[in-house]
Simulated assay, not measured.
Amino acid sequence: MGRARQTFERRQLGLTLRRLRSAAGKSQQEAAKTLGKARSRIVQIEDGEGAPPAADLDALLDFYGVDPDEQETVRALAAKARKRQPRRSYVDTLPDAFQRFADVEASATNICTFEPAIVPGILQSPKYVRALIAEWGEIFPSESATEVEDRIAFRRARHAQIFVPDGPQSVRAVVDEVALRTTVGDTEVMREQLAHLLALNDRHACLDVRVLRSGVFAHPGRGGGLTLFGFGDRGCPVAYSSVVYGPSVYLDDQSDIAVMSRIFEHTYRNALPADESRDLIEKVLKEFS
């Protein structure tokens, strides 16, 4: 079977199957042997250039020891990958959408991110993450302590996947000054978060953090956050549009990507230079001391 055109749904399916295979400790060769196929077929599927037939998918999920609930989610994702309808955006309404976001994030070679009122997720410190989750306590009052800890552990694991030697070649992040000065949790949380920003920027050559002053004029990103994922020669870019609540929305139509890229580049250009951004973060850190 030849390579199919890579679509976002196929890419998500491939990344999910790659993660499940890795978690099961299986090689691509072993997976291919289970299907009676060449290893190149598993490579195609995991690269998002094909969706396996239902019988092959079931065989892989059983071989990887995937639990029944997650099997149903992967089957639903595969159904979308096989039946893509013409559209400009993809809305991920299936369970565990944040895990699939992390799969896309970890596979990117270049990341550009901006949030208008909070520190972008990729830069959040452990206490800041916990404080943000606590703010949702009244929204999800039935959430157990175990579920909260699971969410925090997932965030930490997600961060650990990014700033590694084989991680993204470039991460550009624009942080709104409002996010630096708005107390999330308490002053101790903010001190940790601001120090975390400075440490990340010093430690990782791939990271470029810029601060957007709160009084900047003509700011097209003011209404919402966005993240752009680039994949080099392994696929077309994808944009993620963040919302306060609701399903994950991805854009992979190239005209939409162009607009989202212009929004980010405009925001990035209007932010302070790297050295001035660092000076401002240090200043705000002292204000919280």
Rank of each mutant, 00 (worst) to 15 (best):
R3L: 13
T7P: 04
E9K: 03
L20R: 07
R21L: 09
R21T: 04
R21D: 12
K26H: 13
K26R: 15
Q29T: 14
E30C: 03
A31Y: 06
K33G: 11
L35K: 01
A38C: 00
S40G: 05
V43E: 04
I45E: 00
G48S: 08
P53H: 11
L61I: 10
L61R: 05
V66R: 12
Q71I: 15
T73H: 13
A76E: 15
L77Q: 08
L77C: 07
A79I: 00
A79M: 06
R82P: 07
R84H: 13
R88A: 14
V91W: 07
V91I: 14
T93I: 12
L94S: 02
D96L: 09
A97I: 01
R100Y: 06
A102Y: 08
D103R: 14
V104D: 01
A106Y: 12
S107P: 01
E115Y: 05
I118T: 13
V119A: 07
V119R: 03
P120C: 11
I122V: 14
P126Y: 11
Y128Q: 05
L132F: 08
A134I: 02
A134N: 08
E143Y: 00
A145T: 04
V148F: 03
V148E: 09
E149H: 04
E149N: 09
D150K: 14
A153R: 13
R155Y: 04
Q161S: 11
F163A: 10
V164K: 14
P165W: 01
P168F: 08
S170R: 12
S170M: 12
S170Q: 12
R172G: 02
V175D: 04
D176S: 15
A179E: 00
A179D: 09
R181M: 05
R181N: 05
T182H: 07
V184N: 10
G185M: 11
G185A: 06
V189I: 12
V189W: 04
R191Q: 13
E192T: 11
Q193D: 10
A195G: 15
L197Y: 00
D202R: 08
A205E: 15
L207C: 07
L207D: 02
R210Q: 09
L212V: 04
S214E: 12
P220Q: 02
L228P: 09
G235P: 03
V238K: 03
V238C: 02
A239Y: 02
A239T: 10
S241F: 11
V243S: 10
Y245N: 08
G246H: 06
Y250E: 09
D253W: 13
A258E: 10
A258Y: 01
M260F: 10
R262L: 11
F264S: 02
F264W: 01
F264I: 04
Y268A: 13
N270R: 09
L272C: 09
L272P: 03
P273S: 06
A274P: 01
D275C: 04
E276F: 09
E276I: 13
S277M: 01
R278F: 03
D279N: 04
E282S: 14
V284F: 03
L285Q: 13
